[in-house]
Amino acid sequence: MAEDIVLLADQVSRYFDVSRPWLQRTLAREPKQVLRAVDGVSFRVARGSTLSLVGESGCGKSTVARLAVGLYTPSGGEIRFEGEAISAARAQPDLRRRMNMIFQDPYASLNPRWRVRDIVAEPIRAFKLLSSTADINARVGALLTQVGLAAADGEKFPHEFSGGQRQRISIARALSSEPEFLVCDEPTSALDVSVQAQILNLMKDLQQRLGLTYLFISHNLSVVRHMSDRLGVMYLGRIVEIGPAAEIFANPRHPYTKLLLDAIPDLDMVGRSRTPVGGEVPSPINPPPGCPFHPRCPLANARCKTEKPQVLHLGTVEIACHAAEEGRTTA
């Protein structure tokens, strides 16, 4: 069965120049400093499914989100949307219309000086989906109702809404261009849990009803487990393990995935204590040589310190780890 791929990332990298200004750098005789936010990442998102990327801050997941909608151009590798290179896809309004994005911060993602009606209508106007004001207003009303708000809420300004309601407005705006593919960058991490449940339920309902495809970015493994079909775990700009979510949660193979799963506090943890792994995430400006996880990895050996692990297919899961390749369980 050939998979129907909406978005494909092939060895995508994105580097940022974080050097000091030229004059200061030259005076201090410093070399240029490059931050490898994303370093050779490959994945594919099948139509109607959810791929989640999970990782700690600085792992590059938000950069991937922005690469996926073309806000950043890749420094290397390629991203294809509906079979076309992302830059070419974005140049065509009809393809660009089919992708949109939901953001993290409901307080920053809506223009405070615009009425909700105009915020939601902007994509409709930008893509000229409807022309008459009456049609646009009717459509905005329908969209607001679809996300659980009232059509009359369009007259208000964003500050009149709570965080969860604003996130609904954000979703209504994302849906107004009638997209098929949504990039969701931490859509619930600024929300309280009860509101998070409302938004996650809404996103799942919409996915089923409209056949949406999600690229879901989150640091919260429980949320990711609830939402995803496939899951990619990122560390320092790379995907260390990717595969069906159920498989990874049932049988995590990469030591970093195991660490993350062990570190999550869970309601079933009452009275139990975790065994935290020491160490911290190194700076992506100066990543460790070899496998970037080796300084914190309980299974690291000499090979891990020098040789970058290649992606290995283990059943349905792809994993980048020497220990998994060699079947080692101890260093």
């Binding site: 922005r66 219309r97 809506l110 893509f127």
Partner: peptide, 11 residues
């Protein structure tokens, strides 16, 4: 801010 990103995403 993200509202500017949102505008840029739709071109």
């Amino acid at each position: 801010k993200e509202y500017v990103m949102a505008a840029r995403v739709i071109g």
